[in-house]
């Protein structure tokens, strides 16, 4: 089995040098190119055609997201492994959408890098433990359904008694505009359009 070829893109030369030092000690992998510019790398990839592209996410002239998209469009056979300082789920999600096969943090140790390169080179995905944790958390949160707050239920009771915004505002020591905001939120959460619909919803679910 011939060694898998790697191309590195990072706007910091010292990071590239560090990666080269580590990867040179990992058997089965070989670095065939590097660039501190994503734009230049796009052209270089046409002639070098590596198995794996190791790229930074936050770069000045072109973001890793855009770069990955272009690479996957032009050279779909290249596997992209993102290497970043950031672990925010939104960034990771966008990189996944752009077509990466893996995402690891820059302070990742050698063992994890070996694992990531190994997985990615055989067509599997790899996400570091920090990244997986962030992704799982964001997924868990998005599953949560909306619920009415105590204050919102109190306001529904007042609406039931036919109190106007002014009266509700005075009773709760808030401005009328805030009452308006509450009303908007309540209608959205209950998926109703009118007071009648809202009260029907509230009675049916025994909220008030």
């Amino acid at each position: 089995m011939s060694a898998k070829s790697i191309f590195i893109v990072d706007d910091h030369q010292m990071v590239i040098d560090g990666l080269k030092l580590i990867i040179s000690t990992i058997p089965g992998f070989q670095i065939i190119g590097e660039s501190t510019s994503a734009v230049r790398a796009l052209d270089m990839l046409a002639t070098t055609s590596p198995d794996i592209l190791l790229t930074d996410v936050s770069m000045p002239e072109m973001s890793g997201i855009e770069f990955t998209r272009l690479v996957k469009k032009k050279y779909p056979q290249i596997k992209v492994l993102a290497l970043s300082m950031f672990s925010e789920s939104q960034v990771v999600a966008e990189m996944i959408d752009a077509g990466i096969s893996g995402y690891i943090l820059k302070n990742t140790g050698k063992q994890e890098l070996i694992e990531a390169l190994g997985k990615v080179s055989i067509g599997e995905n790899y996400f570091g433990p920090d990244i997986t944790l962030q992704l799982m958390k964001s997924f868990k949160r998005s599953q949560e359904e909306s619920r009415l707050t105590d204050r919102e239920i109190e306001i529904i009771r007042m609406i039931e008694q036919d109190f106007g915004n002014k009266r509700i505002a005075d009773m709760l020591f808030i401005s009328e505009r805030t009452v308006e905001t509450h009303r908007k939120n309540i209608l959205r959460k209950t998926n109703t359009q009118s007071v009648v619909g809202l009260l029907k919803y509230a009675y049916e679910r025994k909220i008030i």
Binding site: M14, V15, D17, G18, L21, I22, M85, K106, N107, G109
Partner: peptide
């Protein structure tokens, strides 16, 4: 991010290689 963070990341990589 761009200065200290990258420097520390690169330092860690070098140390990893040194450990070897």
């Amino acid at each position: 991010h761009d200065g200290v963070g990258q420097l520390l990341s690169a330092t860690k990589m070098n140390l990893d290689a040194l450990l070897e």
